[in-house]
Amino acid sequence: MPATPSEKDIITLFRQLSSTPDQAALWQLHTYYFHRLYAYILSLVRLKEAAEEITNDVFVDIWQRRHLLENVTMPEIYLFVCAKNKALRYLKSKSLPFEPLDKAAGLECVLEKDPHEMLISSEMLKQINEAIASLPPKCRMIFRLVKENNLKYREVAELLDISEKTVENQMAIALKKLTASILFKMV
């Protein structure tokens, strides 16, 4: 699993891309973001093949318009908005509606631990994942997006076209249920 880059790392990669035609920076971005962007796009378009193509398209676009990247200050959300716009264009071209939260019904979210992580037993992990599977789709989708991408509530709200408060509430519900799944005596 690639280490999570800091915002500064990504800004640096964006600068590199805009100033030199060096593909190394693009592949670095790809390593960091391919899986995350793919999961997000899949939640919108639901079809694996389409999601794959749109994800590739995001990176091709980044490359072709790399001169625009120099002044981007929030690179992560830039990538996700780019992904969202492409996914929406796809849905429109197929006359499919944009219903991100309903579309999320089929999207699983399974947590896993680092091999070195000793504090969580497999049994505990199993319970947590059962709890996630039982979350309402909308709640699970928000949890996945926040947890996987470390996006700010504000950013997730913008991506999903919902209020920041809703994101916060849903995250609270999700974490409460997950924690309860381990400590059932609580709550």
Partner: peptide
């Protein structure tokens, strides 16, 4: 729970193909 990671929906083969 904070330490846990979300399992990817795509494989390394998907990444390579992409």
């Amino acid at each position: 729970i904070k330490e846990l990671q979300v399992r990817k929906l795509s494989s390394q083969a998907d990444e390579e193909r992409s």
